[in-house]
Every structure is written in C-alpha cells, then in structure tokens.
Design a protein around this nucleic acid. Structure first.
Lengths: 357, 357
DNA sequence: CATTAGCACTCACTCTTCCTGAGTGCTAAG
DNA sequence: CTTAGCACTCAGGAAGAGTGAGTGCTAATG
C-alpha cells in the first residue's frame, strides 16, 4: 500500500528527529518542526496509523514513537533527503586521502582510520583481489654466494620478490637458464595446477639451480594465496561508546567483539555480492549480535582486479544520509586515485615532473 | 622503611584478592585465606598501618581496602609470586605463533590479536627498525618496453622492488651500466645525504637510462623512510568492557580512544628506552586518560636490527603476574622464531627438507 | 469529512527515604 | 602482641510518591 504524502512526511520527520536526539519522538515535537502545519492530534492519528502499518514502534504506551526496522528501510530507500557534502567536507576528505596514501599496503588501515574520523563511527576497511592471479614473468638475480633474489611479476603488474638462501653454487648463467625455463613453462597457470611432473621437468632442465625450484614454487603459491586473502582493518571502535544506545556496556561489548571477530571474516564475503553503497538496517544483519546495529558499506576499485571496501558500523539510528554520502564520496575519491595512470604500485611517488630530461 | 614480613603478606593478599574480585578487600576476607593465622582485628591493625604508609587506600570509611598505586608498584617489584605458565599455555602460545606467522608484514596485526587472546585484554603490537638502513645493492630488470623493475637489497638483507614505467627506451645494457653506476656510488650511504651533485654525476654516467635515476632515488628515500616508521596494531579493545572498572562507559571510551590515538604514536617512543618487560602502573602513565589504567609491555627482536613490541592495556587491578609471564613468554618465543637461521624474510616457507638434492 | 481542542489515563523516571550489612576503629581483656 | 567485642559509618538496594511527556478517544469546528 502506498503511503500518503503526509504520512511520508511524518515518518521522515520521526526518523530525522530520532536520529538527532535518540529519544522517542512525540507528536508535539513533530508539530514544532517548521513546515508542519497540522496539530498534534492530527499527527497523533497519522502516527497511530504508521504504527499499525509497522513503520513505527512504541517503546511503551506513554512514550513517543521510534522507527521500526521497516521504517528505517523505507526511510533509507525512499524518504531520505540527499545529503550534500559541503565543500569543506569534500576538501577534508580529499586532503586526507592525498596526504596519507603513500603506500598501498598500509592503505587498508589508513582508510579505516580516515573513514572513522569522517563519519565519527567505527569503520571497517578491507581490500581483496577478486580475480585470480598468475605469474607473468620470473627473474632471478644472483645476490652473492648462495643468495638468490627471485623477482616475480604477477598478472596484475604487481611485482614481488624473495631472497632465497641455499647452500648452492649456481652461476649467473645457471640462473639465466632456470628463469628461461620457468618463464617458458610456469607462467600463466594458476599455482594449484602445478603438477609433480611439471616440477620434475623444470628441475631436470634447471641444472645446478634445481634446488631453487621447490622454493620458488612454494613462494609462488604462498604469494598468490596471500594476495587473494583479504586484508581487513578496523578503527574507531571507541566511538560506539559515545552513543547513547551503547551506554549498555554489554551490548557495546557484544557489538565490538562481533566487529573484531566476525566482521573480519564475514564482511568480505558479503562484499562479493554488493555493488555501490549498501545499507543493512539492524535486524537485516545475519549476525545475531548486530541485530540492532546498522552497517553501511561501499566498494571501490583499487585497480588491477583488486577491490576495496569501506564500511561503517553504528546504531540503527544513525545519520544514514550523511554517512552514505561521505562513504560514497570516499569510495569515489579512492577509486579515482587508484585509477591515476601509470602508478600501479606506489601512487604518489612517480610524478610527471620527474619525467623531465 | 622496610616492611615487616607480615605486612608484606597482608599487602600481597590484598592485591591478590583485589585482582581476583575487583571489590575492596576487608579484613575478614584476608583472615579466611589459608595460611593466615591472625584474627581480623590484627589484620585490621596491619591494614590501618599499610594505609597510613600509603600502600593501601579506602574508597570510603566503611569499605575494605584497595591497593594504591605505590601498593601495586611494590607488589609488582617485590611481592608478586612468579606465575608459572602451564604446559598448556606455552603450547597454545607456540601453536598460535607457529601457525599464523607466515608473513612478517602482517605480523604486527597477528601478534596483537594473539596477545590479546592470550591475556584477555586489549593488546598493542608494534614493529620498528632501530638502526638506520642503507641500500646494499641495486638490480634493474627490463620487464618490457618502458617497464623496468628496480630491485634493491637493503643493508638488513630485506629486498624491496618497484615497477617503474617511463617512456624510455633503455636496453639491457643501458640498465646494466646504470646499475653498475648505482652500485658503485649510491650504496651504503644514508638517503638523506644524497646530494644534487651526486645525482647529477650518476645521471651523466647513466646514458639512456638517466631518466630512471630520480625515480629510483625517490623510491629509495621513500622505502627507507617507510621502513623506519613504526607499524602499530591494536586488537581486542572490546575486552576492556568486560571488566568491572570499565562499566563506566565514559572511562572506557576515554581509555579506548587514548589507545587508538595516543598509544599509536607515543608507545613506540616509550619503547626506545625500555628493556625486557616493563610494567607501568596507573598514575605512572604520562597520558592523563590512562592514569588509572596499567600497561605492561615488552620488547623482542625481529632480527636485522628490527625490534618488536607487544603490550597489554588493562585496569590497574590486572593480574600482573599472569600477564607479565605470558607476555614475556610471547616475546621470547617470537625472538626465537625470528632468530631461526636463514629465514630472513619469510619464515616458515623455507624448510630444511626442501634443501634435499 | 478532515482537523483540532480537550481530557482522562498511562507509565518511565527521578527523588526521597529507609534499611541492611559489610567493614571499620577503638578499647579492654587474654 | 593478639584478639574479642562493640559502637559507628556509609554505599547500595528496595519501596514509595510525585512528575510530566505522551497517548487515545471524543466531541466540537470549519
């Protein structure tokens, strides 16, 4: 059933007020809103109907109303006013990103921190690879007696390396041979598919440097597995405690513990099926502990098949408009930053000016 | 003034009981302890004196006593019974470490998590380099047209790399020349001391690949700066909320925020001047927010001039004996793990069995 | 017929008061 | 020096009363 305009307006007002005050909203409070030309009695009637329809709830008979889960849902989906980020806000987000993102590997933590600061809520940030990787190119460097540096370029242009120390006496040319063999037969396959025979073959062709092969294969598998695994960081949990709904320490603890344990492992999975910014209102959460806690999250591209996620955890009564706006802006800015051409690994360290000469 | 044996015993009992119960300890409770052959009146007299001496405090006239800061200090320094880790405990710590430490770069986070689990308190973990680094060796790999991989071996045997993409047409031999020049003139110096003249000289000798030089120098500086910076992780903050002293949400929030912000930047500094396991009792903390929160921390060696720190934050009434014991054991095990020969970078991935052939 | 004023009713919260009991300090006896 | 005994203190819980924000319903109004 479609709601009348007036009901929508009342519902929106209730949610807005409740978000601000964290107190049940009475009919009088609504009347006092600018742009509300009805008496408290009328509002009471409307509120009674909205309650019957399941959009509002009454903590007890003589209290005001608070939004129910479906009330929030409706609010988020249809009623919420667009929150326009002020210039200041966009600026400070951009500055923060510019300033702090020198290195990608610490990105996750830093983003968590920044998002938490921007939303004044605990933030979760994660990065993971979505498509599978393979090795594109092998190089071996003789770094000293018994010391070899293996350098792998992955299919996403990321480069990783490992120092291998073995009691072996391989020469430069041995290594050249081995890397040629590796490049010929071990590229572009996913590491699980490396068979014993293949390894045998490579080892036979490798001559003096054969003992390196298992170490390298190990390293490859480890690396690919690692970069497929998701990296998660949480920051700003203490902000929860500033909110009235978490004065109940037990609740706060459950939620925080849940963020620590649960979210770290589950959220990335949820992320898979998500696109754009998504709001999970209280009881829509799978996890029992989060039933009265909402989550807003959004994805962004890191480039090279990697995806990032930022999310915020807060009370069902959170300022969805503001939070989603800031989060989306964050995600957008990050995506843009990573899309900057020619900076596959260490954005910020190759500047155009340096290409002089 | 030296305390009588009996006073020491009473003080120890008060601290022990208070640690267990979080309630002010009355004379009767002490009498009921095994091995306590005095009446409550005697104990009361002793407690009155200990209070006068400043080792105990009375929250109000008709309550039992709680240890004062100097009481804790004395306890930690002299009275505390050695806590013997059970075999189970050492085992589970070792298992945890074995299992989870495949990669050093994620070590900090994982350690924080493990320590938090082992102590049931929020844990902080940090790693930083204590002595300064330089580059020991440069290698340049031609990875395609306009694509060069720079591989640096640092003085601590760590290897880092960077993919550089520039519109340049350098040949293998150009790169060989450049790396020779770099190895000849840019090794073993700290990166701040690279002068403009030096760079000029290198660039002049570098021929076609000259445009790479500034990028590489930049990368070097960035890398060395980065690995000097400290990496910190916090885990398990929610555990604080389980403790009765943090039922006061405001206090909990202040402490947690302080851990987030403050500790992250300050603790590494404190670490510098520390050796072994150190206990900071409540008011000894510099930070105002932590005045009634204790910190136990200890350092360990990661090898190659790197140092790690693990610390635990908890109420002044924490089980110092147990916590210090577990923390020390952790630190010891980690030190040992990193001291394993021949595994400078990725412990766990080179196993002796792989050295067959 | 939608809106509003008015009124009786409900009920969470706060404040006050009272009571209980754990714990104390002191004194006097062992 | 140690201990039994006693009067005293005081935090914390329980019970009760008062307050006021908010409700639903009814009847009057434009």
């Amino acid at each position: 059933m479609e709601l009348s305009e007036r009901k929508k307006k009342v519902l929106r007002s209730v949610v807005d007020l409740y978000i601000r005050t964290a107190e049940p909203v009475g009919s009088k409070a609504i009347t006092e809103l600018p742009d509300m030309k009805y008496s408290s009695a009328t509002i009471r009637n409307e509120m009674a109907e909205l309650t019957a329809m399941g959009y509002l709830e009454q903590p007890h008979t003589s209290a005001g109303r608070i939004p129910s889960a479906s009330g929030y849902r409706l609010y988020v989906d249809e009623l919420m006013m667009d929150y326009r980020l002020s210039l200041d806000e966009t600026k400070s987000i951009n500055n923060a990103i510019e300033e702090k993102m020198q290195r990608v590997d610490k990105m996750v933590e830093k983003v968590a921190r920044l998002v938490s600061q921007a939303t004044e809520l605990p933030a979760i940030s994660a990065a993971s690879r979505s498509r599978s990787l393979s090795v594109k190119r092998y190089d071996l460097i003789l770094a000293g007696p018994g010391s070899v540096i293996a350098v792998l370029m992955l299919s996403n242009e990321q480069v990783v390396n490992k120092l291998i120390k073995l009691p072996l006496d391989a020469s430069e040319s041995d290594l050249k041979l081995l890397s040629a063999v590796l490049n010929a037969s071990m590229t572009d396959i996913s590491p699980e598919h490396i068979t014993a025979e293949q390894m045998d073959k490579v080892m036979r062709s490798a001559g003096n440097a054969a003992s390196l092969v298992p170490v390298i294969v190990d390293f490859v598998q480890e690396t690919l597995r690692q970069s497929e695994s998701t990296n998660v960081a949480v920051f700003g949990q203490s902000r929860l405690l500033g909110l009235p709904e978490y004065r109940d320490v037990d609740k706060a603890q459950r939620v925080m513990a849940s963020i620590d344990e649960d979210a770290l492992s589950n959220l990335p999975a949820v992320m898979e099926n998500t696109n754009g910014t998504r709001v999970i209102v209280g009881p829509e959460n799978v996890s029992e502990e989060l039933k009265d806690t909402s989550v807003v999250m959004t994805k962004f591209d890191i480039g090279d098949g990697m995806q990032g996620m930022i999310g915020v955890v807060g009370p069902t009564r959170m300022d969805y408009a503001k939070v989603t706006a800031r989060l989306s802006y964050f995600a957008e800015s990050l995506s843009k930053m990573f899309a900057k051409p020619e900076q596959p690994q260490l954005p910020g360290s190759i500047e155009p000016e340096e290409q002089k000469e």
